[in-house]
Design a protein around this nucleic acid. Sequence first.
DNA 1: GTTGTGACGGGTC
DNA 2: CGACCCGCCACAA
Length: 112
Amino acid sequence: MSGRVPTAFEMRVYDYVRMIPRGRVATYGNVARAIGTKATRAVGMALSRNPYAPEVPCHRVVRADGDVGGFNGHATGSEPKRKVKILLSEGVEIGATGKIDLSRFGWVADQA
DNA sequence: GTTGTGACGGGTC
DNA sequence: CGACCCGCCACAA
């Protein structure tokens, strides 16, 4: 199994993402800001390494544009975005382009 | 210790 | 509108 131990930074990301409620989504920049950093990319990197899946709902973390991001973004034609389906299952509305209305589903820890 | 890259964001051309 | 660039922090080689 993985001999790699998650760093404190990654733990902050997981801890925040883990408490995202169902039917809501947070943006990378939002998470980065919430844990006290500006590295939106580092947040994505931590989620890519997400050893706590599916406990940590990485699919609930989307881009600031409302796009699902790159965790499954190679859905060309016949292969639908798996994470998108999960989000739809959780009650998140997604446009035909795969965009999410952050003004409605965008979640912030401050509201928790 | 240095270099490059990354599941990003925002600004500019 | 889309394409391009820069900057951000963290991590792997």
